[in-house]
Amino acid sequence: MKTMQPNRRLLGLLRKESLQILRDPSSIAIAFVLPAVLLLLFGYGVSLDSKGVPVGFVVMQPGAEAASFVGAFQHSTYFAPRVYRTRQAGREALRAREVTGLVVLSADFAQRLKADREAPIQVLVNGVDANSARLLEGYVQGVWAVWLQRELTARQIAIATPVAVQARIWFNPELRSRNYLVPGLLVVNMTLVGALLTAMVFAREWERGTLEALLVTPVTVNEILIGKILPYFVLGMGGMVLSVAMAVFQFGVPLRGSLWVLAVCATLFLLAALGMGLLISIVTRNQFVAGMIAILAAFLPAFLLSGFLFDIGSMPAVVGVITHIVAARYFVTIVQTLFLAGDVWAVILPNAAALALMATFFLGLSRRLLRKRIE
């Protein structure tokens, strides 16, 4: 009978915490509804692909060559050309943001081209958004190169090129930003459950005065921690299953890696997030403060410093160093690798080891601080 008591105590704690979750609609909403909303928003509403970009063309002297050049852009899905007859009209359209770029063909464009002379074009780009400006510049150069090669071939003019470039795109041949964003968003969703919800666990107990009653019972520190962690772990993994199912079946993101590898790595990351949330909850004793710290210490870094939206390599050196203490950084790398490339162990194993180390650190520190409070 005595050997059954620890199990009965643990089951009682698990039942208590599970009922608390079921009675709190916000927990279910954060675990299932909010991730679905974020996936739908980013999957359908947010795109890093530049398609249908309005570009102005100033054609000072209409002709077959100019029409052929503009037509090359009209047949591209990346551009929505608008033709202007004067440079002033094009500049005004660029200032008014009616177009994001301006391509100017001089009056002697056709003559220079026919005379086999240099026929330069002017490209003006709105540089307010630097990323979009660089993308637009690259697209224009690409279309220009293809058009020029076609024109020279039609005129039977051969150009000796010492280097022939053959582009081959790996892992995301369709160049869909959705395939890159959706897997990273799974990490953000799990951070919400792991850190934000568990940050309220002990803080809520302190505010309601129920933790003192729990501490006078025969339960051990380990039983308290397991009783608090396990229900939220199940909740987090349930949200993960929903997110993966939406990514694969709703958005068509390929999952080229193994499900069991994804499950193991998700377990390590969720334990790290749960440990961080518990640590915040133990230290603060206030739900509002715990929630704010969880957003600043877990959610925002997962959103901004994990490589989910912004490339870590392009960040300043100091910020790049800081990202090494963000658990989401390692899981984003794992998830994007599993979805788009497959089981690349040279990438998965080091990042999984970092997650295991962080999970051990946060859970161990949480247990140590909770034991001090119990004493």
Rank of each mutant, 00 (worst) to 15 (best):
M1V: 08
K2I: 08
K2V: 07
T3C: 11
T3M: 09
T3S: 15
M4E: 13
Q5N: 12
N7L: 14
R9P: 09
L10P: 06
L14E: 08
L14N: 04
E17A: 07
Q20G: 14
L22I: 13
D24A: 14
S26L: 11
S26W: 15
I28V: 05
A31S: 10
V33P: 10
V37C: 09
G45I: 12
G56V: 12
F57P: 09
S68I: 00
A72Q: 10
F79L: 07
A80V: 06
R87D: 15
Q88V: 09
G90Q: 12
L94R: 07
A96N: 13
R97K: 14
G101Q: 14
L102N: 09
V104I: 13
A107F: 07
A107H: 10
D108K: 01
D116W: 11
R117G: 02
R117T: 03
R117A: 02
A119C: 06
P120L: 02
Q122T: 14
V123Y: 05
S132G: 13
R134P: 09
Q141L: 07
Q141E: 04
V143I: 11
W147C: 01
W147Q: 00
L148M: 07
Q149S: 03
Q149C: 01
R150V: 07
L152A: 06
T153A: 12
I157V: 15
I159H: 04
A160N: 10
A160M: 11
Q166W: 03
R168C: 04
N179L: 14
N179P: 15
G184K: 06
L185K: 11
L185Q: 14
V188S: 01
T191A: 06
A195T: 00
A195S: 11
L197A: 03
A199L: 01
E207I: 03
A213E: 13
T217D: 04
P218E: 08
N222Y: 10
N222D: 10
E223S: 07
K228V: 04
F233P: 10
G239S: 02
G239N: 07
S243C: 12
A245C: 13
F249T: 08
Q250N: 13
Q250G: 15
F251N: 10
G252F: 13
P254G: 04
P254H: 04
W260A: 08
L268I: 07
L271S: 03
L274K: 03
L274E: 04
L279C: 08
S281P: 10
I282Q: 00
R285Y: 01
Q287P: 05
A290T: 01
G291Q: 03
G291W: 00
F299V: 09
P301A: 06
L305R: 02
S306D: 03
G313N: 12
M315H: 05
V318R: 08
Y330C: 05
V335M: 05
L338G: 03
D343E: 05
L349H: 03
L349A: 07
A352W: 00
M358G: 00
F362H: 08
R373P: 01
